[in-house]
């Protein structure tokens, strides 16, 4: 598509130069009728070129819409998007939030449920060990020994039951981490879509740029970019930094936060 456009552009420019040269010749020889015909041809050629470029832009937009499977009701105002890959991507991202939330909740539920078991077994073990040492030091009466004997049996039962529950929960917690796989796949798809959208946008921008050039709408890009707009965005919340290491305006950990704050007198 790009080459095709450049050829058209070159063709249009050479047509323009030819016409201009002829026009000067006609005017110099006072041939006004033919000169006005030339001007007419010139305008015609420019219009043709604009129509072609606009046509390409429209086709490009249409392709982009088809590629992203946008199913929209254009009659309603504003047009209502029933379905599209972007909408689908939003749903996928929502899914990631739901999945990760569920996984975090289930994991914490499991831990909260079994933490008391582990703690009680630990407390009981500590207590029995002290009793056991008393026995070894022969500081125990017959009655106390009989109690210890029974307590030992109970503890072994508790231990058996408790560790079974603990192992089951630990296993469940590991299984629960499967959300990473699921959400990772979904995120990869969304990343693919974002990349596609970007390349389609670049294509459209290229065509639009050519339309602007022939119609004289193009502005100096520097004047369009207002530095204040970029400045204002500085304190917009960004969420987790994915490439903290490669950015100098971002801290890469708590230590750097502490250094920065202490430099401010904290």
């Amino acid at each position: 598509m790009g080459n095709n456009n450049t050829e058209q552009q070159d063709h249009f420019l050479s047509q323009l130069q030819d016409c201009a040269n002829h026009l000067v010749e006609k005017l110099q020889s006072d041939n006004l009728d033919e000169a006005s015909e030339m001007i007419h041809d010139l305008v015609e050629a420019r219009n043709q070129h604009i129509f072609k470029s606009v046509g390409q832009l429209t086709r490009g937009l249409h392709n982009a819409i088809v590629n992203f499977h946008v199913d929209a009701d254009m009659d309603s105002e504003p047009p209502e998007v029933n379905n599209s890959e972007i909408k689908d991507a939003s749903n996928r991202l929502q899914y990631v939030i739901t999945k990760t939330q569920e996984a975090a909740d289930k994991t914490m539920d499991k831990v909260e449920a079994v933490a008391p078991i582990a703690m009680n077994l630990g407390l009981e073990a500590t207590r029995l060990r002290e009793e056991w040492h008393r026995l070894k030091r022969r500081e125990m009466t017959k009655e106390e020994f009989r109690d210890l004997y029974n307590q030992m049996g109970d503890f072994l039962d508790q231990m058996d039951e408790g560790t079974t529950t603990l192992n089951k929960s630990l296993q469940d917690i590991i299984l629960e981490q499967g959300y990473q796989d699921l959400t990772g796949q979904v995120l990869r798809k969304v990343i693919g879509l974002v990349t596609d959208v970007e390349s389609e946008l670049v294509k459209l921008m290229r065509i639009a740029g050519q339309v602007e050039q022939v119609t004289g709408l193009a502005k100096n890009p520097e004047s369009v970019r207002d530095p204040n707009i970029v400045k204002q965005r500085d304190t917009v919340a960004e969420g987790p930094q994915i490439n903290a290491e490669s950015r100098t305006d971002v801290v890469s950990g708590q230590d750097e936060v502490d250094d920065l704050l202490s430099s401010l007198g904290f």
Partner: peptide
Amino acid sequence: TAEAKRDQIVEAA
């Protein structure tokens, strides 16, 4: 917070 820009930390301070 996950916000880790230096400007943000300074602003919070």
